[in-house]
């Protein structure tokens, strides 16, 4: 389970997270919703360990392991996966090679044996099929020339291969048409298991029609101001964040 207590963080000296308390039990999917500038992306970067996001207080643990003291790659090996809002293009790096290097790095971290090129290809093909993705995707440079939808699907493919215990989806729905949205949601739903939890960060309720969360948290001005069931997302969609702000 992910446990965050009193987490505060700043970017370039400006406080963004002002005391986050949050628990995502194993097996559950929680959504974090909030208006622009509320700190949603900052929370995801702080959990993944991006440079420039300075933790000033509090703690974050995954299955009892302190995340905040680890390098990004150590967090990944510990089971954290961040699906990027803007997946980065890596010209000159082949997608297959990238995926295999990442998978083997994580497997090494877990003390598992590495996969050779053939074993990897077999696994990757199976995952591609599940995600209705073309094998061409493996031959291209990482995210290079991918459409918005392809980039997000590539994130989900990575997630399906790396099998994290905590997936953080940072606005994965942005820039997706409805078909791509469904495929992405199916990919996440397929990973649902007693030892998997997810934090779905989104501005809109739409994605939550397909990935139905166990809980919805509303993040505003660096704090979680409201927590409820899936119906909270629908409520927000109808009445907007202003109503929550007024209530808080």
């Amino acid at each position: 389970m992910l446990r965050i207590e009193g987490l505060t963080a700043e970017v370039e000296g400006k406080p963004i997270l002002k005391g986050i308390d949050l628990e995502v039990p194993a097996g559950e999917v929680h959504a974090i919703m909030g208006p622009n500038g509320s700190g949603k992306s900052t929370l995801s970067y702080v959990l993944a360990g991006r440079e420039g996001y300075e933790v000033t207080g509090g703690s974050a643990t995954l299955n009892g392991v302190d995340l905040l003291g680890m390098e990004p790659e150590e967090r990944a090996a510990a089971g954290v996966f961040l699906a990027f809002q803007y997946p980065v293009e890596l010209p000159g790096v082949g997608n297959a090679n990238f995926l295999r290097t990442a998978l083997n790095a994580i497997r090494r971290g877990k003390g598992e044996s590495e996969l050779d090129a053939m074993q990897f290809l077999k696994l990757a093909r199976a995952r591609l099929k599940e995600l209705q993705m073309s094998e061409d995707m493996l031959k291209r440079g990482v995210n290079v020339g991918f459409s918005g939808g392809e980039k997000k699907r590539n994130e989900v493919l990575q997630m399906a291969l790396l099998r994290p215990s905590l997936a953080i989806l940072d606005e994965t729905d942005s820039g997706l048409d409805i078909d791509a949205l469904k495929i992405v949601a199916d990919g996440v739903n397929a990973l649902r298991a007693p030892d998997f939890s997810a934090l779905v960060i989104t501005h809109y309720q739409r994605l939550l029609d397909y990935i139905v969360p166990d809980k919805v948290h509303v993040l505003m001005q660096g704090r979680i101001v409201q927590t409820g069931g899936p119906e909270l997302a629908k409520q927000l969609e109808a009445s907007g964040y202003a109503s929550v702000q007024a209530a808080a």
């Binding site: 360990g49 991006r50 790659e73 990944a76 996966f81 961040l82 890596l90 000159g92 990238f98 971290g109």
Partner: peptide, 22 residues
């Protein structure tokens, strides 16, 4: 790019070498 690779579990040294080769 460096963060993207590291967030996927690739150690920093290896991530740098991947980017230099690219």
């Amino acid at each position: 790019q460096l963060f993207y690779l590291r967030a996927r579990g690739i150690p920093e040294d290896k991530a740098r070498s991947i980017l230099v080769e690219a």
